[in-house]
Design a protein around this nucleic acid. Structure first.
Lengths: 225, 225
DNA sequence: TATTAATTGTGATTTAGATCACAATTAATT
DNA sequence: AATTAATTGTGATCTAAATCACAATTAATA
């Protein structure tokens, strides 16, 4: 009798709606894999028979655009990855890579679908997650196009500080090229803006360590010009 | 005994999974409303107790950005509107307006949730719709930022021709300002590109009537530069 | 049908950010 | 520690598209 999911402390909010029997069934159909920074977790264009759940770590969702790779979003622990594939044509429409060391739980797609149809609370949680992500996409879409670079970079720094690390002093795990892909800017422009923030004493940067010195200002830049 | 949904010929794929009793219950909890071009169907920031289903017509989803309204996408008949609100905080996160005369079916949120939990085939269809829309968002996000204006406008024209009107000769129902909001460009730039397409004999335009004269070329522009 | 409002076309000018080019760091590997 | 590879910083130049400005159409309404 496999109790690994029953005993797992990193279950998703959806999985928390499952009863012990369902959790046991889940245990038999899921597999946890560790990834190092930079590892590919899901590959665009490949066939998939799993849903992935990010138990621990930080990943980026990226799509191969016509000219360069675009980072669509950064996803932190506690979210599913590749849900759209589950209900689509089973071919991954985007790639996911580890930005920090990550633990991913791969769940067999059939078992996942069974849980969806047998447990309506489970499926309601999944629906909620999908809806949130749709809204986030819309918002991102507006941000990407209606703010200028300083604002977008300020926004990303704040996202890392408030949402991801919950600290104003952190080691950022993406490089300037990746940040550029995330905010639709060239590496050089990112570098220039970051230098500017340093000069203006808004940030202190040493290598990948970032400390927010003037948060008010940063928030102001993120919101306005 | 209300049979309007049972007899409705414009049911969604999800509603087609409902049995006659469920359809009767739906009939008692839904209301069809007609909208004229330009009418507001869902208002960002307002409280909502309904899910909307677009039975007929064409609408745009738009969000108030910091500087201007951004048209996130055009939605044609056969899709739900405002699903994210259903599972979110009940406050509409975006607006929806009729671009063409439209028929919208408003379904009480509680009845809708009941169907989701009682009928897993129904909920599976809804999940599928949400997933598709997520993928579409990601793709749109890449298109918005990695193609230049000529390509984006060519893409929009093709979307109207192939997906919305299924004809290479149609009356476009959005003006140049709205098209600009849809492809993140100024009204003037849209005008210039359209004139250019006219000069190059790619399109013939008379007022709002558009005829595609050189589709190969248009497709080429949409894909490449 | 006259008048007002909305939409469109096109030139001139400006600008945010891209691209190019190369030096300076920093990190990874032999 | 030495060498190679990856990342970063910054100036100079270029460019697609924004913005400004205003005339020309077209549509809506009194």
């Amino acid at each position: 009798m496999d109790q690994k999911c029953l005993l797992c402390t990193l279950r998703s909010s959806a999985e928390n709606k499952l009863n012990p029997e369902e959790l046991e069934k889940l245990s038999l159909n899921c597999l946890t894999v560790s990834f190092k920074k930079g590892d590919s977790i899901i590959r665009q264009g490949t066939y998939s028979t799993n849903v992935a759940y990010l138990k621990e770590g930080l990943v980026k969702i990226h799509i191969e655009g016509p000219y360069f790779t675009q980072v669509v979003r950064i996803v932190k622990r506690g979210h599913y990855l590749g849900l759209p594939t589950t209900f689509g044509d089973k071919v991954n429409q985007y790639s996911v890579s580890a930005v920090e060391p990550s633990e991913v739980c791969f769940i067999d797609i059939t078992a996942f679908r069974d849980m969806l149809s047998s447990n309506s609370e489970f499926s309601s949680q999944i629906l909620t997650e999908l809806c949130k992500s749709e809204l986030e996409s819309y918002q991102k879409c507006v941000n990407r196009t209606q703010r200028q670079l300083r604002g977008k970079i300020a926004g990303v720094i704040l996202e890392f500080a408030d949402d991801i690390y919950q600290s104003d002093n952190f080691i950022i795990s993406i490089n300037q090229q990746e940040m550029g892909n995330l905010v639709d800017a060239s590496r050089e422009s990112v570098s220039r803006v970051l230098s500017e923030f340093g000069r203006d004493k808004i940030l202190r940067m040493e290598g990948k360590e970032i400390e927010i010195l003037n948060k008010k200002m940063l928030i102001n830049i993120a919101q306005n010009g």
